[in-house]
Simulated scan of single mutants.
Amino acid sequence: MGETWGLVLSLAAGILLGAFFFGGLWWTVRRGVSSRNPGLWFIGSTLLRISAVMTGFYFLLGLPGESWQILLAGLLGFIITRLVATRLAGSDKSDLDHLERKASHAP
């Protein structure tokens, strides 16, 4: 029973890590396109998001159970979040026109 809870906790942690990663990506694109230094936004955000997700997966290794199963459950949660985020981002096409108008000032 303890191993099952470890897998469920790992799946939930993967979903939270995915929400942080893809939510941060969405936020960065919205802010970075209209900023004065978009390169700093994108590089800083990428480093922060990757560091946080890698640290989260590292801590998943400390959960009880088989390490590969724990990591696989966490990765499954991360992928599920990616699919949901992709679907949600694709459903709002009107925001893309707004971003294209903002980005038209770029050289």
Rank of each mutant, 00 (worst) to 15 (best):
F78C: 03
A89V: 09
I15R: 00
L16K: 03
G23H: 10
W68R: 09
Q69E: 14
F22N: 03
L25T: 10
G32K: 05
G90T: 04
A73P: 02
P64V: 02
A103T: 02
W41K: 03
T4A: 11
L96M: 14
D95G: 09
T4G: 04
L72H: 05
G24P: 03
A103W: 06
T46N: 10
L7H: 07
W26R: 08
G74D: 03
F59W: 15
L99M: 15
R49C: 11
S10A: 15
T28Q: 09
S45C: 11
L88M: 14
S45L: 01
T4W: 07
I79H: 06
W41F: 12
N37D: 12
R31G: 00
S10H: 06
V29I: 15
L71A: 09
F21S: 02
P107F: 15
A19D: 01
G18P: 06
S91T: 10
A13H: 01
W5K: 07
L9S: 07
P38I: 08
W5N: 13
F57C: 09
A12E: 05
R101L: 09
L61R: 13
V29T: 11
A106S: 10
I80E: 02
L96K: 14
T81L: 11
G74P: 06
L16M: 09
G2T: 05
G6F: 03
V84M: 06
R36T: 11
L25G: 12
L47A: 10
F57A: 06
E66Q: 15
A89M: 11
T86M: 13
L7W: 04
W68F: 09
M54S: 10
S10G: 11
A103C: 06
A73I: 08
G18N: 01
G56P: 02
R31W: 04
F42M: 07
G56S: 04
I79P: 09
S67Q: 13
E3I: 03
G39L: 06
G23D: 13
F22S: 07
E3Y: 09
P38C: 08
G39I: 00
L72K: 08
L63F: 14
G24H: 05
G90W: 11
I43H: 06
R87Y: 10
R31H: 10
I50L: 07
Y58K: 14
R30V: 12
I43P: 01
W41Y: 13
D97P: 02
L99K: 13
D92F: 13
A19G: 12
G23N: 13
S35M: 05
K93V: 15
L47H: 00
L72M: 13
I70S: 04
D92A: 13
L25A: 14
L63Y: 12
E66W: 11
A106L: 15
R30Q: 12
A12K: 03
L11K: 03
S10E: 07
I50M: 02
P64F: 04
D95R: 14
L40F: 05
F78N: 00
